[in-house]
């Protein structure tokens, strides 16, 4: 049974319930210069998940995951 997560507004399918770390790894795989997750922050359903909890925080179908990076601005 696939688990469908909303990652930065797009639906992403996983074979089983992923952790935040799994979701981040998948999302950053295609990003150049992502610095191995440095300069990155994650919110699940509008709650910030600290980096230290990424591996142990499960994500389930329908959860909204926002993965943000420090970028040019201001």
């Amino acid at each position: 049974m696939t688990v469908s997560i909303i990652v930065n507004g797009d639906e992403v399918a996983f074979d089983r319930r992923p952790s935040v770390e799994d979701v981040v790894a998948r999302a950053l795989a295609d990003v150049d210069g992502a610095s191995g997750g440095r300069g990155i922050a994650v919110a699940v359903n509008s709650d910030v998940v600290p980096r230290s909890s990424w591996a142990t925080t499960p994500v389930d179908t329908g959860d909204r995951v926002e993965i943000l990076a420090a970028t040019q601005g201001g």
Binding site: A27, D30, V31, I40, L68, A69, A70, T71, Q72, G74
Partner: peptide, 9 residues
């Protein structure tokens, strides 16, 4: 300063 934005390819 830096801004926070969604990561993208």
């Amino acid at each position: 300063t830096v801004a926070l934005r969604r990561v993208h390819t």
